[in-house]
Design a protein around this nucleic acid. Structure first.
Length: 496
RNA sequence: UCCUCGGUAGCUCAGUCGGUAGAGCAGGUGACUGUUAAUCACCCUGUCGGCGGUUCAAGUCCGUCCCGGGGAGCCA
C-alpha cells in the first residue's frame, strides 16, 4: 500500500517509532511505524494510547489460545518484542467455528481490527478482531513447540524452531543489540572496521587448530604435498583470528577493529566453546597495554549499559527464569571499576587463599578454570583484569616486559564465564620479535610480511580479542554457549 | 580427548529385589460470558537409544557402540 513518507522541515525522513496519520484512501487513523511503509508491529502497538482505538492489521504467530465458550483469546507474537498481543475473537467472525476455534500454537495469522483498552488484567491493550485469516497452519499433533517450557537440550534438537520461543527470541534480540552497539561504539571512537579474510594461509600461533579449506578431491589429497596443487597453491584454512591482518591496518589507519566469524577445529566439548564463533578484535596503533585495558573496559561497560537501557523486558525474563541476580551483576559492572592484578599477584592470592584447589598453583603455569573462577567470582566479585603473564605461556607476538620473563598481556575474567577478553601490547621491536619467533620454531619466511610491519614505521600497538558469544552469555546469564548463537557448530553437530 | 551423570509416551520425568509400562503436561472430544501455562469431564499415546550377552523371564544385570548434560583440557 502506498503509505505516505513524511519528512520534517529539513527534509529528513521521520523515523519516530509510532506516528498517527490520516490515510486519505480509508479515511481512518492508521499507525505507521516507520518511513518504509512497514506495518506497525507489536513493539510499537504496545506503546499506543488506546483511546483512539485505531484500526490495525497484525501479522504473527499464535503463541497460545484459550477458548472460553463465548469467545477466543489468542496471543500473537511477531518477534518484534518479548510481549505478545492478545487478540479477542468473537463468534460473529464468519470463520469462527471453521478456523478460529481450531487455531493452535505456531499457526501464522493475519488479524484486522481495532486496538482497544483491555478490561482484564495482564495487558493494557488488546486487538478486537474484525477479521482473522489463517496464513499458515501448524498441525498441533506434530508441532514440537508447546505452550509450556521446554528444556534447552530439547530445543537445541530443533534449532530451526527454537527462535520462536521466549528465551531464544530474547537472546536473538540482545545479540543483535550488542552487535549494533559494538559498531556504534567503535565508530564513535574513530575506529574503522576492517574485513579480515575468512580464508587464510597464516596460522595465528597458539590460537588453535585450523579447518583446512581445499578444492582437492579425496583422491588428490592422498598424493604427496597435495596443497601445492590446491586452489591457492599452498595450504589454506578458515581463520582462527583476524589479529595479524588487523595489525596491518592498525599500522595504516591507527584504530581499527575486525568482527566476524572465527573457526577452531578443536575437539572442545564445553559450555563455552564453539567450532564457529564470532570474535571482536580491535587493534590500536600508538597504544600500550594500559590504553588497551582502558578501551576494553570502556567497551564492555558501554555494551552492558546499552542492553540495560534498550532490552529491559528481555533482561527481566533472564533475571526471573534463567539467572537470578543477573541485573545486579550487570549493574555492578557499570558502577565499579574492573579489578586489576598482575599474574604474579594472582598467583600469590591463590597461594594464600583459604581453600584447596584440585590443581596446584605455581608461578609459570597457566591459571586453571577453578583459579580464574575463584579470583573473579569469590575474591573480587566483579570483572577482573589479570596482566603480565609469564612469556612461556603466551604467544610470540606479545610484547616482552622489561623484567625479561613476563609479557604485556591482559585477560579479562568475568563471573560465570571465565575469560571474556584476551589481549596484549604487541612486540613492535624487530629484534625481539624475531627472537621470540625463532624460539617458537616459526618459519620467518612465512611471516616476513608481519616482520615488515616492524621494519618500516613500527610503533607501539595493542589490541584484544573478545568472544562475542561469551559476551552474550555474560549479558543474558545463559549457561551454555550453544544457546546464544543461532546455529551452533560443535564437534559432531551442525544440523542446519 | 578425559572424568562423570543420563537416554522410558510429543515434552518433563517416575519405575522398588529381574516378573511383562506409569504420572503431569501437550494433543483429541465436549462443557464454560473475559481468559492469562485458564478451568472441568472423558479419550488417545511406547522399537524403554542401537546391537550383543546372562536368565524360565531384562526398562531393570553384564559387554559394546551411538547420542546428550555437567566438569576438565585447549581457548575467546
Amino acid at each position: 500500500m502506498p503509505y505516505k513518507i513524511e519528512l520534517n522541515e529539513q527534509g529528513q525522513i521521520l523515523m519516530s517509532p509510532v506516528r498517527l496519520y490520516h490515510s486519505a484512501f480509508q479515511g481512518e487513523i492508521i499507525l505507521n511505524c516507520d518511513a518504509f511503509s512497514m506495518k506497525p508491529r507489536i513493539k510499537e502497538l504496545l506503546a499506543v494510547i488506546p483511546a483512539a482505538e485505531p484500526q490495525i492489521e497484525l501479522c504473527g504467530w499464535v503463541k497460545t489460545c484459550r477458548d472460553s465458550g463465548s469467545l477466543c483469546f489468542i496471543e500473537i507474537t511477531d518477534g518484534s518484542c518479548l510481549a505478545g498481543l492478545q487478540v479477542i475473537a468473537e463468534p460473529s467472525l464468519n470463520n469462527y467455528e471453521s478456523e478460529v476455534r481450531r487455531l493452535s500454537t505456531g499457526c501464522a495469522v493475519k488479524v484486522c481490527g481495532r486496538l482497544t483498552a483491555s478490561p482484564a488484567k495482564g495487558q493494557a491493550v488488546e486487538l478486537r478482531a474484525e477479521s482473522l485469516s489463517v496464513i499458515g497452519l501448524a498441525d498441533p499433533e506434530n508441532y514440537p513447540l508447546q505452550k509450556k517450557r521446554h528444556s534447552f537440550e530439547f530445543l537445541r534438537s530443533i534449532s530451526h524452531l527454537r527462535p520462536r520461543t521466549n528465551a531464544f527470541g530474547a537472546v536473538a534480540r540482545i545479540r543483535s543489540e550488542l552487535n549494533f552497539a559494538i559498531h556504534r561504539f567503535f565508530r564513535e571512537q574513530g575506529f574503522i572496521q576492517v574485513h579480515t579474510p575468512i580464508i587464510t594461509t597464516s596460522d595465528c600461533e597458539g590460537a588453535g587448530e585450523m579447518f583446512t579449506v581445499t578444492a582437492l578431491t579425496a583422491e588428490q589429497l592422498r598424493q604427496p604435498e597435495p596443497f601445492q596443487q590446491d586452489f591457492f597453491g599452498r595450504r589454506a584454512g578458515l581463520t582462527v583470528s583476524g589479529q595479524l591482518q588487523a595489525e596491518i591496518f592498525a599500522l595504516s589507519h591507527g584504530r581499527v577493529y575486525t568482527f566476524g566469524p572465527t573457526f577452531r577445529a578443536e575437539n572442545s566439548n564445553t559450555s563455552r566453546h564453539l567450532a564457529e564463533f564470532w570474535m571482536l578484535e580491535p587493534e590500536m596503533a600508538f597504544c600500550d597495554l594500559s590504553d588497551d585495558m582502558e578501551i576494553a573496559e570502556a567497551l564492555i561497560k558501554d555494551l552492558v549499559g546499552t542492553v540495560l537501557r534498550n532490552c529491559a523486558d528481555e533482561l527481566d525474563l533472564f533475571e526471573r527464569f534463567i539467572s537470578k541476580g543477573l541485573l545486579n551483576k550487570l549493574e555492578t559492572v557499570l558502577s565499579q571499576p574492573f579489578a586489576r592484578m598482575t599474574y604474579s599477584e594472582a598467583v600469590a592470592a591463590l597461594e594464600h587463599a583459604d581453600r584447596k584447589f584440585d590443581f596446584p598453583v605455581q608461578w609459570g603455569t597457566d591459571l586453571q578454570s577453578e583459579h580464574e573462577r575463584f579470583l573473579c567470582e569469590e575474591l573480587t566479585g566483579r570483572p577482573l583484569i589479570v596482566t603480565d603473564y609469564p612469556k612461556q605461556i603466551k604467544p610470540f607476538y606479545m610484547r616482552l616486559n622489561d623484567d625479561g620473563r613476563t609479557v604485556a598481556a591482559m585477560d579479562i575474567l568475568v563471573p560465570g564465564i571465565g575469560e571474556l577478553v584476551g589481549g596484549s601490547q604487541r612486540e613492535e621491536r624487530l629484534d625481539l620479535l624475531e627472537g621470540r619467533m625463532c624460539a617458537a620454531g616459526l618459519d620467518m619466511e612465512e611471516y616476513s610480511w608481519y616482520l615488515d610491519l616492524r621494519r618500516f614505521g613500527s610503533v607501539p600497538h595493542a589490541g584484544f580479542g573478545l568472544g562475542f558469544e561469551r559476551l552474550v552469555q555474560f549479558v543474558t546469564g545463559m549457561s551454555n554457549i550453544r544457546d546464544v548463537i543461532p546455529f551452533p557448530r560443535t564437534p559432531g553437530s551442525a544440523p542446519c
